[in-house]
């Protein structure tokens, strides 16, 4: 059996493409350290011209919300319908707004 201490840690990879959008999560990989993760990300996730900028984050360093908090975290926003432009009726005569 291999020693689990020798398994390279998992990194999450985020890439910003050509079209000005934010960095987007594209997947994960293993690497011994951050520099290696960056290089591996370049080799694994940009083989088809996908990106111009790469972030890597060690997966263990990510704090994620828990599914059981779904109600308190996201449902309150559902009732704030006035935050969306479609809430307001603007007469056609006014033109584009």
């Amino acid at each position: 059996m291999s020693d689990p201490r020798n398994e390279w840690p998992l990194w999450e990879v985020f890439i910003r493409g050509q079209h000005g959008l934010s960095h987007r999560h594209v997947g994960s990989l293993h690497a011994a350290d951050a520099e290696g993760a960056l290089k591996n990300a370049r080799d694994v996730y940009t083989r088809r011209n996908e990106g111009l900028s790469i972030w890597v984050v060690e997966a263990a360093q990510i704090t994620a919300s828990s599914p059981s908090d779904k109600g308190p975290l996201y449902e309150p926003a559902e009732s704030k319908v006035y935050r969306h432009p479609t809430f307001f009726d603007i007469p056609d005569e006014v033109g584009a707004m």
């Binding site: 390279w8 990989l29 293993h30 690497a31 591996n40 080799d43 694994v44 083989r47």
Partner: peptide
């Protein structure tokens, strides 16, 4: 030795 290296060598 690992998949990441396999892919890098192929590149």
């Amino acid at each position: 030795p690992v998949l990441e290296e396999d892919i890098a060598l192929a590149n």
